[in-house]
Design a protein around this nucleic acid. Sequence first.
DNA 1: CTCCGGCGTTGAAGCGATTCGACGACATTA
DNA 2: TAATGTCGTCGAATCGCTTCAACGCCGGAG
Lengths: 334, 334
Amino acid sequence: MVTIADVARHAGVAPSTVSYVLTGKRSISPQTRSKVRESIRLLGYHPHAGARALASSRTNVVALVLPLRPGVHLPALMRFVTAAATTARKHEMDVLLMTADEGAQGLRRVAGSAQVDGFLMMDVELDDDRVPLLRQLPQPSVLIGRPAAVAGLTCVDLDFEAAGGRCVDHLADLGHRYIGFLGAPSVVYQRNTGSAQRAMAGFGAAAMRRGIASTALPADDDYESVLHSVRALLRAQPAMTALVVHNEAALGWVAGSLRVLGRRVPEDMAVVGICPDDLAEQLQLTSVQLPAEELGHQAVELLVARLNGQPVPPLTLLAPKLIGRASTAPRPRG
Amino acid sequence: MVTIADVARHAGVAPSTVSYVLTGKRSISPQTRSKVRESIRLLGYHPHAGARALASSRTNVVALVLPLRPGVHLPALMRFVTAAATTARKHEMDVLLMTADEGAQGLRRVAGSAQVDGFLMMDVELDDDRVPLLRQLPQPSVLIGRPAAVAGLTCVDLDFEAAGGRCVDHLADLGHRYIGFLGAPSVVYQRNTGSAQRAMAGFGAAAMRRGIASTALPADDDYESVLHSVRALLRAQPAMTALVVHNEAALGWVAGSLRVLGRRVPEDMAVVGICPDDLAEQLQLTSVQLPAEELGHQAVELLVARLNGQPVPPLTLLAPKLIGRASTAPRPRG
DNA sequence: CTCCGGCGTTGAAGCGATTCGACGACATTA
DNA sequence: TAATGTCGTCGAATCGCTTCAACGCCGGAG
């Protein structure tokens, strides 16, 4: 293995000088600098990560804590992961993968052994036992999602409230006056990370603002339940011409249910989803996308900013983006 | 930060003793051992990863190199990743994520800076420029997939040949005598990682063995092409009653094409896929699964074995597993 | 009784970087 | 001219751990 001493000898300088060339923490004359750079290139020198971490107490690695529970949309998760990894590399950092099943114990281990400079954590629950721990850790962390108390943390999330509103605006602009909302399973509205509630709140508020009649119902993720909820919505509001769906698992059954109930999409019923893009693409569904890449990117940027001592807002909300597809089409006002 | 010296002082022993308790590389008396363990627990001591790596030239981290190119099935990839991470943890190891876009350069960097003990690399191409590099690296590596020359490497893969055969056997057992094979796009058979060829070879050989008439055609991943290929297959062999599909992207169009051509599934035409399990589940397709979890698990086990100096076979093939679903049903022999 | 070998433990020497204080050389200012 | 500062470089201490040679102790063999 080639060490900094080898490089120093080869370049005819002191090891510390090589270090300063590498880190740029002191001014070095252009001649010396290029001489050292050349030696580094020639010898194929790479600083030993462990030694560097030991001496500088900086690892240039961030931990990424992934959820493992069933129900998370894997393609979106994967996109998030690669975006985070790619962005991290832009900052000369690497990513250490952790799975949620290690729990708080795992965080303590990784933090305690100084394996990483910071944490990226997805899918935090409202009463997550890891959150108070993260607060105490010497390493900063960024949460993806939005736990109850945001104070003292750094969080990134899609602005679900705006997303709900965006759906209404789109439909209202198309002339719809009676809109339904098909939500997540009711249990999710009882204890949950909050995105479900916020999307619905945004939906309701926007409907009020635009003077539109709205009705909402939860749905489980089986065909029976979806059909039942859709039928109930139609019964509650027979004039309904549009549906907003915030329930990935139910999406597949929506079109079928509507067909059974004699409604064609989009002629008789426009449908907008709040879901990952590839799902919407596959179903040809107008949707507000779940910006996995953007979330991953932002999360890393925020963490890096904190590592550099820059102040960052406790909560960053990404603006929703609506993509029009075949499931909504312009309709004459009336 | 709590160091090994703190623990040693607290337990009234030498730092080296604490180290030996931790690593188990020398015999320690039960009394001393439990005394040290207690101090470790009390002080919440975690060995500093960097220091440990520096002194022992072992990081307890493996690199996982992910493909990024479009077309890889993300859910399967994600499953692989989590399986690898979980298995690694069983061996007290962590996983460092790398994306393929860093290329050979990235491998050199990570290997050179001694960040990891070994590499796990997915989706290797036949003439991959990273493979010769991996051979030279001081760290061992395990490839997922099967490049041209396996000598001197360690590879894990699904036994695609057996998989092709397994499909035939299943169908033959159900009484089918004329079977078609819908393959990957033809370009894939020209330059490719080889799994496509092997699956087809296995299919052909099994058909011969069972005295079954077989016909094969490639298909691109658009509706037109799939319909065209299916029609061609039926024209070539009108008595065909079963179809084996080895083309994830085409799978979605197969049922539709058959319907257009007046064939119901499974009554008129049985269909078996070689594809990730969730895709098959979604389409209610009898399939040979792509065992993502098992691959991830095996890959890590092999790497760990190599790190421990144990000999491992250059090529490990996983036996295919066929799951029966609605797209094949028993049919009377005839 | 002495010698030897094994066991349990220790002290100290690295591992390969960073970083801080110090030190010439040279330019600037009084 | 002497005092002061700046710039570029160096030497040495330090980070926290592993590991090796060495050593005292004890029991069993000679």
